[in-house]
Computed example of a mutant assay.
Amino acid sequence: MQPVATTPITLGASHLGKRDDAAALADALLASPLGNVDTSNNYADGRSEQLLGEAIRRVGGLPEGKLVYSKADRTDEGVFDGDRVRRSLEESLERLGLQRLPIYFFHDPFSVTFEESMAPDGGVPALVRLREEGVIGAIGIATGPIAQTDQYVNTGLFDAVLSHNRFTLVDRMAEPTFRRARELGMTVFNAAPFGGGTLANGQASYGYREMPAEFAAHLQRVRDLADRMGVDLAAAAVRFSTRSELVDTTVVGVSTLQRLEQLGQLLATQVPDDFFDAVEQLGPPPASGND
């Protein structure tokens, strides 16, 4: 396995490019001491990478110690073969103004089958060759459904895995996947510790989907527990991930300058170990409905 340099927190840039203050946010993400930055070829139709690249050029290159991660994406028509992976990387490097990336993920391969991805002309062999050529340092799989994630993890070809909304304070769906990744020596990126916002703002969906009744009831019990113990639920959600021995870095999406400032405050908030013990005593979380 190729090692991947990580920080405890990775700043997610999926929303970058969707607001008027995007340039200022790109500058702030690059300058932030909170962690490295994660983007993708298709975030905001390429604007996320473009804005980060402009921010990098404004300061004369990546600040010392700062890394930017990115991901290969299919075309609008769904093409995601080896040629597309190479072209996706070329686009990413051009937008970012970089010669090399520390890691490049195979991102949401929903338009192709696993067998097509693994074929000689598929996306995965192309990533392996790019790693061998040194254009990328490591390769990762970043997708949602656990069954699909497991297929790629179990190939033993990937250096890292990124899963989102599936390993949180109230959901342990990705735990077996992360344990398997650990056995293989992979780096684990745990994204969306708030479950799509639920654990930060109290919205009624989880992972952008309607919650099953049993899961919603469990979530309410965790909220009630946090209220009784005087615990900031959003801070606890982040801390759950950063304290886990299964996680190397927690990817937190940052949509505004205010959110970036709030993240710093959450990370500075103390959450007692007793709270996590009490959450465990509630029993295994029921299915969240994500898969």
Rank of each mutant, 00 (worst) to 15 (best):
T6Q: 01
P8G: 04
I9T: 02
T10I: 09
A13N: 02
A13P: 13
A13R: 01
G17T: 12
D20C: 03
P33M: 06
L34K: 04
L34Q: 15
N36Y: 06
V37C: 12
D38M: 13
T39R: 02
T39D: 08
S40E: 05
N42K: 11
S48M: 03
S48I: 00
A55T: 04
R58S: 15
G60L: 07
G60T: 06
E64Y: 03
G65R: 13
V68N: 07
Y69V: 05
R74F: 13
E77Q: 07
E77Y: 00
F80E: 06
R86D: 11
R87D: 14
S88K: 08
E90N: 14
R95H: 11
L96Q: 05
L98M: 03
L98H: 03
L101C: 09
L101A: 03
F106C: 10
P109C: 02
F110T: 14
F110P: 01
S111E: 15
T113E: 08
E115G: 00
E116T: 10
S117R: 00
G123L: 05
A126V: 06
A126C: 04
R131N: 09
I136P: 00
I139K: 00
I141L: 00
I146L: 15
Q151S: 13
V153Q: 01
T155N: 09
V161L: 09
T168E: 07
D171V: 11
M173A: 15
A174E: 00
F178R: 01
F178N: 03
A181V: 09
R182L: 12
F194T: 06
Q203R: 15
A204W: 07
A213E: 15
Q220F: 02
D227H: 15
D227V: 14
D227L: 14
V231M: 05
A234P: 04
V238N: 00
V238R: 00
V238Q: 00
V238C: 08
T242I: 15
T242Q: 10
L246I: 10
V247Y: 03
T249C: 10
T249V: 05
V252Q: 08
L257H: 06
Q258Y: 09
L260A: 04
L263A: 05
L267G: 03
L267Y: 10
T269V: 10
Q270D: 15
D274K: 11
A278F: 09
V279R: 01
Q281M: 11
P284H: 05
D291L: 01
